[in-house]
Amino acid sequence: MMRASSIVCAIGLAAVSLGTAVAEPSAAQKGVLDGYVTTARQEAGFSGPSAERGRKFFFAEHAGGKADSPACTSCHGKDLTKPGETRAGKAIEPMAASVTATRYTDPANVEKWFRRNCRDVLGRECTAAEKADALAFLLGL
């Protein structure tokens, strides 16, 4: 009896940890996302982050930015589990949180890149809602 229950227990644990390896963000990553969600709630019409809206935003061709970088995918690539490339030719580690575990853990770093990348792609800074959606999408990959 002891033995059977411990096996069930182990299987259960394995399933849970498998789940976290693929999709569950770390505490630090959740903290970064929550920061944007809290700010976004003060903007009009935001009911919560949507990975689907984030995906559309990330793949869309935006107007107003620079000719070299109309979309987030211009540098990060279309397969976010693979490396991208900067305009200067250096590889960018894959954006999928499941591939590059160190991503989206430092709020200052995430904010720095949102500020730069949004100006390059949209010609303006992104709203907190756009950032929350994009992060929800990237954290779910």
């Binding site: 620079k66 070299d68 305009r87």
Partner: peptide
């Protein structure tokens, strides 16, 4: 910065 935004704090 050569066409990129590379601004820092």
């Amino acid at each position: 910065h050569f066409g990129d935004d590379a601004s820092l704090s």
